[in-house]
Design a protein around this nucleic acid. Structure first.
Lengths: 245, 245
DNA sequence: AATTAGAAACCGAACGCTCGTTATATTTTA
DNA sequence: TAAAATATAACGAGCGTTCGGTTTCTAATT
């Protein structure tokens, strides 16, 4: 994006959404290329179309009753693909699980790093990270809920990946808090515990999605609330300033 | 239970623990008496002993790989009871799930209401509720984790119960916040969203138990952190007072 | 434009296994 | 010795997975 141009301080949800939605098909294309030794399908357009179908359907069914409860016969009839066809795209149900998890992690890493500016001041970094994280989990809610709930059903290697991913975000918040403290923007709170708390508040958005839907709270409302809630707890007194620094 | 005696402001974890641990057997005894139409065992001491065994073993196995993944053969060999014996205590695997859920809700309601004083000032209520909630979920971590993860596998009726239970705690915080605002103790934040945030922070303690264990953070440390974190966000400026008000 | 061979994709019945559940037999208790 | 509690083995259902047959697509040939 622009090298010297000034970015708008707060990105809004709609502009984010357009960017992210396009990447679903893209990611499936990448998955196809990476895993084409285990995928029996040769032609890319066919494979990508069906992979998107399989992933979406799996997420939908799993988020109702859990991945383990969803049988491949359920997936077959819901996706319109036969049992045999399904097994052309993965070699076991566990592999399907791992493909979805991996796909989500890839998107997350990609989107977060795209929007982070390492040279921005800590407070702006914090705002951006909270917003991007919320927007991303809003667009991909089914996936995040799925990943959250199915972690413990993974193999050891994949589970470790998942935990690393959890701690990764937390570490970023931890670093921002430390940096802010050094610059005197944030007050002297326990950074590690605070970072964990922020992560928990972000997760609530996609884990308890039903609650916020029922109360008709938009993702932008929740973002604004979180930012003010967190800043009340961490901002140094002299840097109070209601509308962005 | 003194009527006019002044209680200590902050209850500590150890004194809480002793109270709560005793009640496990008690609750199993109650369950036996309530459900003795579906339980085929006649003699109370035998039934209670085995029920405690069954519940503990179920929680242990389920929290490793999920209730649905745990087969009754797993439960049988881990508990030392045969398949036939197990079916003397419940009539189906689903009933076992529901018994455990119900048992936990009963304990939660009992403990919370025992420790709440409706006449205390809002800030004290808030402190107490946070501490009690954390201590309770610490003592009964396996159960809370279980309930949290297995909600979506319940039948409609039980699921509704579970959601009500979730919203119940939130409503209490909501009320405390409102009361505090009326008295000018708390500032003018969005009560509903704040109550939800507090709930999320409390849940993090038992859902991410592994993280806090690894970092060697005690429940009392986390309680102290949470209270100060939350109060920074909601206390009115004139009621700032580092050590309890 | 029609034909057709061969590759690519898809289908669905069948297999072996494990699950929850139950009926019957055996052991323990009082 | 009768009742209470536990053990065992068998049943049908449903699971993940496989595999031989069928359809659909693609492109070269007539």
């Amino acid at each position: 994006m622009g090298t010297a141009q000034k970015r708008p301080r707060e990105i809004c949800f709609d502009s984010f959404k357009q960017m992210a939605l396009l990447s679903m098909e893209e990611i499936c294309r990448e998955i196809f290329r990476e895993n084409h030794q285990s995928i029996k399908i040769k032609k890319e357009p066919v494979a990508v179309k069906n992979l998107v179908n399989i992933f979406y359907t799996t997420l939908r069914l799993s988020n109702e009753k859990g991945f383990h409860t969803m049988s491949l016969r359920d997936l077959s009839s819901a996706s319109g693909l036969s049992m045999g066809a399904l097994y052309s795209y993965f070699s076991s149900k566990d592999e399907l699980l791992e493909m979805i998890q991996k796909q989500g992690r890839t998107i997350t890493r990609k989107v977060l790093s795209e929007h982070m500016d390492p040279d921005a001041p800590p407070r702006e970094k914090m705002h951006t990270l909270i917003r991007i994280h919320l927007y991303l989990t809003e667009v991909m809610q089914p996936w995040f809920y799925f990943a959250y709930m199915e972690t413990k059903n993974l193999g050891k290697v994949q589970r470790k990946r998942s935990i690393e991913s959890e701690l990764f975000t937390e570490r970023i918040f931890n670093d921002i808090l430390r940096e802010g403290q050094e610059q005197g923007v944030y007050r002297n709170v326990n950074c590690l515990l605070t970072a964990g708390a922020i992560k928990a508040l972000l997760q609530d958005w996609y884990v308890k999605r039903w609650k916020y839907s029922r109360r008709q709270i938009s993702v932008e409302e929740y973002a604004a609330f979180l930012i003010s809630f967190i800043e009340s707890a961490v901002l140094a007194e002299n840097s109070f300033d209601p509308e962005g620094g």
